[in-house]
């Protein structure tokens, strides 16, 4: 049985209908000793089947160590949202509930290739003179 209901699929299809460019999800999993790994992978498989603009690459956190290092993935399940370029956008954990909407937001932003930020924010970020690592903790509800 699918994790996404038919009504979810329709809603997602609508949200993703206008995305202009391909987006690749790179998913790192480690099936052993991991409560949410299998579910996350299934959810991403179902999601990427909804739009032909989406693709999924699944990596093993234990054996694809070079790739994990390349993406700075230090815990799993992890999902990288990228297109031809890696923008440093990640989600760690099962993106369920409210967070699934955040994942979709990330996908749409990456597909557009534009942050959609206001001019003030763009200007301030252009002046950033040091690396900035944001870790946003959330819960599904």
């Amino acid at each position: 049985m699918g994790l996404l209901r038919d009504s979810d699929v329709e809603e997602i299809r609508e949200r993703l209908a206008g995305i202009p460019n391909p987006v690749k999800l790179v998913h790192f999993t480690q099936e052993l000793n991991l409560e949410y790994g299998r579910e996350t992978r299934q959810l991403l498989e179902e999601l990427t089947q909804i739009s032909d603009k989406l693709s999924l690459e699944t990596c093993n956190f234990q054996t694809d160590k070079d790739k994990a290092a390349e993406y700075a993935v230090d815990k799993v399940p992890a999902t990288v949202i990228r297109n031809g370029k890696d923008y440093g956008i990640r989600f760690f954990g099962l993106p369920a509930g409210y967070e699934f909407g955040s994942l979709l937001d990330g996908i749409i932003t990456v597909s557009k290739g534009d942050s959609g930020l206001n001019p003030h924010s763009r200007e301030k970020l252009a002046q950033l003179d040091q690396p900035l690592h944001l870790q946003v903790f959330t819960t599904p509800t």
Binding site: I81, Y87, G88, F91, P95, A96, A126, L128, L134, T138
Partner: peptide, 17 residues
């Protein structure tokens, strides 16, 4: 995520607490 998209200096991790 939008900040990360805008600036190469920014990395954004969403983490399920």
């Amino acid at each position: 995520y939008q900040f990360a998209m805008e600036s190469d200096k920014v990395r954004a991790d969403g983490i399920e607490a």
